[in-house]
Write a protein that binds this DNA or RNA. Structure first.
Lengths: 209, 209
DNA sequence: CCAGCAATATGACATCTGTATAACAAAGCC
DNA sequence: GGCTTTGTTATACAGATGTCATATTGCTGG
């Protein structure tokens, strides 16, 4: 009887990445409570012991998954902004609108995100990653806002405007992921447009009055 | 030797409530992953077996905690709105501003909330409670918005305006809880004020243009 | 084609989980 | 004061968890 190969020996980098992606799928599907070493490895089609061959433990794997998902997300949004051309106003608009359509407006993504957020309290590494990711999300917003408002705008104006943009986008994103039936992506875009016009419509001293 | 009383026999309603509050504290402090039957009961100063004397299981206890925390939250915000007097505009403003100050703007509360949200995917009861709580949060917003916009405003206008208010408030609340250093409650209020003026400044056809 | 290394699998481990069961004890009733 | 009720504890159990030590196995350089 011819013995079938019992496993495949793959490129280490590929295996690492496939474990990370399996973790993301599990977090999206089962939440943090249902995502264990064995569940992840089954999803990746791999024995449970292999996890510790590539990662110091499940906590490290989850952290690397956070970094991976977060980077992909920010990269997606920046790519959307870049595609909008050179006008910073159009860039910001594209950046914002990308949040209301797939793959960003996605209940699975929110579920994954919630799993990460729920670890911030207990896991210092996750807390660190969150701070980094949040900064790399806000940085481009502040850059675009600064360009739109022009050099006369104060730092406070820029900062608060960016905060306002981020807040509305996060809130709409949250709601549309939690309950897609409460409003459509187009409606979200209309709301966001109104808000953007208000915030960056008057080029001077928008919020610090 | 005089034997000390080994436990206290308390009013069932009181014990139930103390278990619920202990659960809320544990969720805030340790997250969903660190909140087990034994941890909750230790926090409540009670033996582990007692949980099942008052609740069908830990899932039910967590669900009741969700209902309790959610109701308290909504009640707080409605109380803030009521204290603002009869003008619906001032009511809405007070309702919104309450989100940026304690006890609503509180990292522990967000942590608790994240724990609940992370269960929506897997626990149908939690999903149900979320829908209810969300509705009871939006209902007063829509009521106030409708009063402000007046009878000429279409249902779509009212709905989308309420969505916009809720989204900005949620986003600002999220950010201020996650990182209190990024802006102050006063700054959040200024941003929200600007948004409210935009949304309900023009009494007609605000968003459906 | 063989040797040796590294990727992968296997099984065992202590610990923690939620729950079930039974013994205990505190308060109320007669 | 004894009895009943039931709030409360203690213990045990099966299963799941993360990790570890060890045994395989696939691949590659000679």
């Amino acid at each position: 009887m011819l013995a079938r190969a019992q496993f495949q020996r793959l490129d280490p980098d590929f295996r690492r990445q496939s474990l990370i992606e399996a973790t993301a799928r599990c977090l999206a599907r089962y939440g943090i409570g249902g995502t264990s070493v064995r569940v992840i490895c089954a999803e990746a089609g791999v024995s449970a012991g292999l996890l510790r061959h590539y990662f110091a433990g499940i906590d490290e794997l989850v952290a690397e998954t956070y970094a991976d998902v977060g980077d992909t997300l920010v990269a997606n949004m920046i790519a959307a902004a870049d595609k909008a051309g050179p006008d910073p106003r159009e860039q910001l608009r594209a950046f914002v609108m990308a949040s209301f359509k797939p793959p960003i407006a996605d209940p699975d993504l929110l579920a994954t995100w919630l799993a990460f957020w729920s670890l911030i309290k207990s896991d210092p590494r996750i807390r660190e990653l969150h701070t980094e990711n949040y900064a790399s999300h806000r940085r481009p917003v502040e850059r675009m806002v600064a360009e739109i408002l022009g050099p006369e705008a104060s730092d406070v104006d820029v900062r608060l405007t960016a905060v306002g943009v981020t807040a509305l986008v996060d809130g709409l994103w949250l709601e549309i992921c939690l309950d897609a039936s409460s409003f459509t992506p187009e409606e979200a875009s209309r709301i966001a447009d109104k808000w953007l016009n208000t915030l960056v419509g008057d080029p001077l001293k928008v919020l610090a009055d």
